[in-house]
Amino acid sequence: AGGTNLLHEGPEGLYVECADVRSCITAGDGASYSAATGEVEARLSTQAGNQVAFGPDGGLFVPPDAPLEIGCGLQGAGTAASPLAAFPIAGQRAWTDNWACDDTDHSTLKCDPDTGALWTPPEHFSATDHFMINHMNPAIAAIGPTSGWTILQPGGTPAFVQWDIPANFLGNMCRFWGYETDTHASVDITANSTATFELGYVLAIDGTVDSIRPIEGVYTAFGASRRERYAGTVSHGYFSLPPAQARLVVYYPAVNVLTGSIAVNAWNSDAMLHTQTRA
């Protein structure tokens, strides 16, 4: 009663034909039903990006996400415990407000393919140093002839102007670097009547004499004792030293008395150093 009766009577009792009841079954969301076969199964969405599939055992299966590929300049696992983050290598100087260049056109940020880290080339630096020395304390009463250039030794100690530039000076541990020195001499000399002489500096680099740097020469004797002041400047530069290399630059006040004798009353060195990192 109540509709089409699908019951049948057979030798063993009442029964229902499968084909008769298949049209009574429907499938809702997430299910699929075939009235032809009577098969009910899960219905997979055809929406792009759907990860649900039938596994090898016939069950529903969602494959795990592939591990995150961490590109250059990133670190972390992409999880709450280890989130993705930039992977920088610290520079020597903090970012300051007076750097006016825009980040797009003037950034030196790079990604190192060997380490996977973001880095910038080491900064350029420069420095200037200046000092003045009065070497003749005490004065040298008389010297000559010297048979060549002689470093002055007031009180028995060699006079000198020195720059001992360390291997980690202002960024030169990373970059090639160079320097320029100049030394201005102001010299007070008393020469006897037969004196002929030269004034200058002996330049030594890393403990080895590099050259003689003359500043003044008197090659004709005065014929009478005289006191005079002489002045001159000598310089030296080097522009492509390897990174992390130290340099010792020393100027020694020196004279070459050819004939007669001279007294060195005063010798002032006004010295300047400029250093700068390079490529």
Rank of each mutant, 00 (worst) to 15 (best):
T275R: 00
N256E: 02
D65A: 12
P122N: 11
A77V: 05
Q75E: 12
H8L: 11
A195G: 04
E12R: 12
T79F: 05
L60V: 01
N50H: 05
L44S: 01
E216W: 08
A271I: 10
A86M: 10
H236Q: 11
A42I: 09
I70V: 14
N256G: 02
C174Y: 15
T26G: 10
E41R: 14
D103K: 07
F125I: 01
G156W: 00
G155V: 05
V202Y: 01
R227L: 06
P11N: 05
N268S: 11
N137G: 08
S240Y: 13
Y15H: 06
H8A: 04
A142S: 15
I205S: 00
S235E: 06
V161L: 06
V249F: 02
N98C: 07
G260Q: 05
A191V: 01
D65H: 04
Q162K: 13
S225I: 06
Y230H: 09
D164F: 06
P242T: 13
K110R: 15
D97C: 07
D102I: 04
A167R: 07
A266M: 01
M173C: 08
F169N: 13
V250I: 13
T115K: 03
W177D: 00
W95N: 14
A48N: 09
D65F: 13
A85D: 15
V40T: 12
P166M: 06
A139Q: 10
N168I: 12
D102M: 09
V187R: 00
C111W: 06
D65Y: 06
Y251G: 05
F197T: 02
D20F: 00
R93P: 00
N5H: 10
G73C: 01
F169A: 11
S186V: 15
G28W: 04
D57E: 11
L109F: 06
Q276G: 11
F125D: 07
R226L: 07
E216H: 11
T26N: 09
P145H: 07
A1C: 08
N172F: 06
G148A: 05
G73Y: 02
C174H: 15
V250E: 10
D129I: 14
A191T: 04
E228K: 10
D129E: 14
T4W: 04
Q51S: 13
N137V: 09
A53E: 12
A254V: 01
Q75M: 06
T128K: 00
G178K: 05
C24F: 12
T183A: 15
